[in-house]
Design a protein around this nucleic acid. Structure first.
Length: 198
DNA sequence: TCATTAAAGTTAT
DNA sequence: ATAACTTTAATGA
């Protein structure tokens, strides 16, 4: 979902800047804002009691977040944490709904955006229940490559660290590394300068 | 098959 | 320099 910045400003939005590792909102809090990233990367995550992170999603420039909970009266089920220096525009709940009411076209786009998120969640849930590390990782890479033009093998550089891939698939880093290595031997991926090409 | 632990090398800040 | 990331190896569920 991308709403033009001018529209957001005239609706009363403001900008907030965040430093890496800073939380934009926390699990358990009530949701009050629609957030849209101007620049930077944000991850939606959870930490289990032992402190191990599970990343729900990673978002970048132009993408929005937090809106899925805006429609219901529920606390956030995850944290939003800045991964880089971030400039984020936010619009409060009431103004957001006024905007949606005023521009049906925008409302439709919002539905499409939510649908897209749901699709991602569904795919990833299936991936993770496929009880085997190689399948989980290919599933993740296949999804990421989906938003990429070139379908050829090795044409897509996975824009994630092994650590992040592990946190997205619920695997541990070491398993991720080993699995990627055997996948390289099987010619499923190529590795160049530590970057993974799929 | 995978997580965990530990130890060490590498890269980024 | 120091933290973050990557890698290898041993061990156990």
């Amino acid at each position: 979902m991308v709403i033009s910045e001018t529209v957001l400003y005239s609706a009363g939005a403001d900008i907030k800047n965040y430093r890496p590792t800073e939380f934009i909102f926390n699990e358990g809090e009530a949701s009050h804002y629609y957030y849209q990233i101007i620049t930077g990367d944000v991850k939606l995550n959870n930490y289990d009691p032992e402190g191990k992170e599970f990343i729900q999603n990673i978002l970048s420039d132009g993408e929005s977040f937090g809106e899925s909970i805006l429609f219901i009266d529920q606390a956030y089920p995850m944290n939003a944490e800045a991964m880089t220096e971030c400039s984020i525009i936010r619009l409060c709940k009431s103004a957001f709904f006024e905007l949606m009411a005023k521009f049906p076209r925008m409302y439709l786009e919002m539905c499409q955006s939510l649908s897209q998120r749901l699709y991602y969640k569904f795919i990833m849930m299936q991936n993770i229940s496929f009880q085997n590390s190689a399948a989980r990782l290919t599933g993740l890479m296949e999804y990421l490559k989906g938003s990429h033009e070139d379908r050829k093998p090795y044409s897509f550089m996975v824009p994630l660290t092994r650590q992040q891939m592990a946190s997205l698939t619920g695997l541990c880093v070491e398993t991720t590394i080993r699995t990627i290595k055997t996948m390289e031997k099987q010619q499923i991926v190529k590795i160049k300068d530590r970057k993974i090409y799929y």
